[in-house]
Design a protein around this nucleic acid. Sequence first.
DNA 1: AAGTTATGGCTCC
DNA 2: TGGAGCCCCTAACT
Length: 514
Amino acid sequence: MAPRTRRMAFPKVLIERDTDSEQSSSSDDEDELEEEDEGPPSESEPEEEDSTKNGYEERIEEDLSLKKKGKAPITISLKKVCKVCKKPGHEAGFKGATYIDCPMKPCFLCKMPGHTTMTCPHRVAIEHGVIPAPRTSTHNTVEYVLQRQLRPRILPIKPAYVIPDQVCCAVIRYHSRFKSTNDGMVYAASSDGTISSTDLETGMSSSLMNLNPNGWQGPSNWRMLYGMDINSEKGVVLVADNFGFLYMVDTRSNSKIGEAILIHKKGSKVVGLHCNPVQPELLLSCGNDHFARIWDMRQLKAGSSLSDLAHKRVVNSAYFSPLSGSKILTTSQDNRLRIWDSIFGNLDSPSREIVHSHDFNRHLTPFRAEWDPKDPTESLAVIGRYISENYNGAALHPIDFIDISTGQLVAEVMDPNITTISPVNKLHPRDDILASGSSRSLFIWRPKEKSEPVEKKDESKIIICGGAMKKRKGKFRGESDDDSEDDGCVSKGKNFQFKKAESKSAPRPRKVNK
DNA sequence: AAGTTATGGCTCC
DNA sequence: TGGAGCCCCTAACT
């Protein structure tokens, strides 16, 4: 409480309450003010949106015209208003670990008006919000031939997914971005406009490109690199900047190739680049101009894209499928994942849209849905979730595994000790290991092994494998393994700073809307 | 422990 | 075209 040295000089204070039934005067009536304190948050289940009992913001207004007269009273209004829309009669915000939406706003999840997140069909349904897009039938000859070529690569039967769901180790305060290749060379593109390469054997690094050779010349000139990929077959590092341009560097000569090419709207940020894993001539880009674009590397010039995939908002990421390279998965700020089942078909509209909460872009790294490189059917994707759920009293942000062929939520992975959002996630190319980036921390997850002891009370999440529901026992592992996962992607032991989870705090299955 | 801050994106004018 | 103002669940640091 601030000192009240000028207390005696204060004019009379009128308190205007919500009920209008009590009006108290005098500034020394502290008990009256204290009554408005709400105490600990209620643990009870949230009521309907028009609840009027708890959680209101207090709005204090001073009548300035009266204040000028000196002795005139100051009116303090304690009428409670929604902190989102500033209107009385309802509330918004956390109640315990459950977030109550403002009913005056469109649904926070699917963005449609008329309901809130609590009752959004995309939230309560296990299908998790798949919206089949109208499928245009285009069976041209090229598509037919290429489909016949690619089809044998895709297994007709989906195997059971193995979802990493236990944290085995963590690195705190890890904050670097690298792009590794197989030969131990790390390439890094930076927001300072430089590309550098570092040899992990020698530790030597060198600069390949600098887009700001003259230093800071104001924000309208400062070039920042966002999108990056390496085309191993061509020996090219590709980067893209915040003004819509693509740059290429030869990894053999470490020299820039040609001039910058405008691949997205001039002045807009290009946030993603991905080279096709099967056809090295194909490049996929995405950016803030609401488009993902497919390019032929052999004819790269402004306006020469093979296809432009339209989105309603910024496209955080766009990836070819990892095995056949024939599918595309994008993450957009409109809270939807989009899937194009064949890059050889009609690309005017996506094959499917999946509603998923990931529209948080400010302050955090944008969410990116990634393919599971081990899934031979190319239908499993992993993406962190922005919106939180109440898991046994804790507001957690799970990492979702989604079957993008159906929109089904296959698994939601979380840990009671990890309360932060995980916008970036990457699955191991061979092992059942998940690396997730959370703010300034890096977490490594793996599936629980059968041999590990299980506490009976430690009921954990429901994981659906291959369509069959299967209850798993969850136990947070306080130690990291020293004899496994030693393939260079896992850091161990010393940096691990988490305590063992109490069994009572283990997460529960996601509550279904009442 | 509250306040601050990070160079974000959208809409409106 | 560009600037002002606005914006619902951050999280680390002071």
